[in-house]
Write a protein that binds this DNA or RNA. Structure first.
Lengths: 339, 339
DNA sequence: TTGTAAGCGTTATCAA
DNA sequence: TTGATAACGCTTACAA
């Protein structure tokens, strides 16, 4: 690997001069600059990022932490991050946690050691653990998808979870549903709680009292959605509509419904977060709240990259992006006598 | 950030001793080791990876290059890579090229500068450009999905593209199809060519002569699949079955078929690579060749991580993994009089 | 078993 | 405008 010294030696100039040309810093004689640039190209010089980072104590790398890379939502967010980052000469380290606390903690430590310029995370932690685990790095940390409560000062890129859940549940109510059950995310995740909140608000506004058993928490995996739906179907008062907190649990629920010989939306209506049909070829076009995934990624990356506003080293910014609501074809009027 | 020097100072030992404990190298007095370990924990020491890399001139980072992060196949491969890498204390830098040559070249340069320990790439380049672009790094390079021809000495993790295409086309022939058209990938991609080869072989073995117009090359995007299928449907002899080189083009083709008021598989049969229904909720369960995506990632990572066999610094390994063939429900007998 | 010291390739400071 | 030189935090001979 050719280094500054090699270029310098060849041209009979000093290392610092070459460095200055490479970094486009300080004044350097136009003539020498030209010669240096030529040699740089000729010898195909590539700066050693590690040396550079050691010296400057920063790096042109962003770290991303997601619970499940095979979830298209997260893949898409990463795509947005990567695009924004690459545009600024940054690269992206991706950590997948498989929804486990341990791997998430490891990931944070890993990224800190790398001295990344920023961490973008869809944490599965609640406030307490976020504080403990994400308090350490001295780079910007940006949360998305599941974000900490307002108690914690951080950067967030999110949609309005309360409003979007209210919108989805409200749509079901509009169509005549009253027994709207919810397959929620794990307790302690603030965003999951907010969605529950929105759902509750919508019911309340319609004069419906949600019973305790109407909401069950899953783990965002398909299997839990299936299990919970099966449970719902055994109730003496099964739901006429079900709202799932993510795509995979919605898929599980839908399969349970089919397995019971029921139809969607004729027998049961279904709605979910992030479950919109991106292929256009799904059997069920699920009514969905769609987070603008690539934008979320891009904005999160921007937050890491953009220099903070004057005096605002500690200013936290909560960016609320617009969600979309896709009505799909999975919600219909409840059967007469069942609503 | 606490450094070796701090720990050393606190304990009154030398930096090297602390370093030795951290790296578990050389002999160190059990007693001192204990004290050091304690201090390490107490002060929450995190090694500065950049300094370490600068010194050792290696890094515990793998680089991955994919054409499209939002393609679940690539996301899944990355997941496999990440799991294997994390298990060895490595992290993964992901580069998305949006199928463009320029971004791929940039990505390679970027990864080289980072001194990554290995590059895993689903290149979109043909042999010539692979040679030019991937010849430079002095770390292992592992190709998957689209791999260079045997002309080039490299590591590859792949399925048997010829055989799998033959299998898919053969299945259609078995069901009675003769006019089997192909929506292929860009010319120059070796793996795409191999698949064409397999398709041709299957036809030939059945005594069918593939006409020139039977195969059209797309760009792996849905739109191209749609366009090509529309073209096929205007032919005086439209296909009774179509084979697409990837999931997105298959989706486009299917939509074109539906848009023409035709049914699958009643009017036209469809098969594809990497288009198996992972959700279990697609309208069309596409007959698919399934690459073992996570395994491909894991094996590729392993190739980067595992020390080479004695004397084999330049030995290239082509790992051929088993594919699966999912029959789905998108292939039926051609309508009488149409075969 | 431990310590000293050189040096990895850069950037940044200071003097020329 | 340039050049010499000292770091950055770590690993690793080599010496003690």
């Amino acid at each position: 690997m050719v280094k500054l010294k090699d270029i310098a030696a060849r041209l009979g100039v000093s290392v610092s001069t070459v460095s200055r040309v490479v970094n486009n810093k300080d004044r350097v004689d136009p003539e020498t600059r030209k010669r240096v640039l030529h040699a740089l190209r000729e010898m195909n010089y590539q700066p050693d990022e590690n040396a550079r980072r050691l010296k400057t104590n920063t790096s042109n790398v962003l770290g991303v932490i997601v619970p499940d890379l095979s979830n298209p939502f997260y893949a898409s967010v990463i795509k947005g991050i990567e695009r924004e980052a690459a545009g600024h000469g940054y690269s992206v380290i991706v950590c997948n946690t498989d929804e486990t606390r341990e791997r998430e903690r490891d990931a944070v430590a890993l990224l800190i050691r790398q001295k990344v310029a920023g961490i973008i995370t869809a944490t599965t932690f609640g406030d307490e653990e976020v504080r403990r685990c994400y308090g350490l790095p001295d780079c910007p940390v940006v949360f998305f998808d599941n974000i900490p409560s307002e108690q914690i000062e951080t950067h967030c890129v999110t949609i309005d979870n309360v409003r979007s859940a209210r919108e989805l549940a409200g749509y079901m109510i509009e169509r005549g549903h009253r027994r709207i059950y919810m397959i929620s995310g794990p307790r302690g995740e603030y965003s999951a709680d907010e969605r529950v909140h929105g759902w509750r608000e919508a019911l309340k506004a319609a004069g419906i009292t949600a019973r305790d058993g109407w909401i069950v928490r899953g783990d965002f995996r398909e299997e839990s959605g299936r299990r919970i739906m099966e449970d719902f179907l055994t109730r003496t008062q099964p739901p006429t509509a079900v709202l799932a907190a993510n795509n995979f649990m919605a898929y599980g629920a839908i399969k349970a419904i089919f397995a019971a010989g029921l139809s969607i939306p004729e027998d049961i209506s279904v709605g979910a977060f992030d479950a919109a049909d991106t292929t256009g070829l799904m059997r069920i076009d699920i009514a969905s709240i769609v987070q603008p995934s690539e934008d979320i990624g891009a904005v999160a990356a921007e937050l890491c990259l953009k220099p903070l506003p004057p005096g605002g080293a500690r200013i936290s910014r909560r960016m609320v992006l617009d969600h979309r609501f896709i009505k799909g074809h999975s919600v219909a009027q409840p059967r007469a006598g069942k609503g």
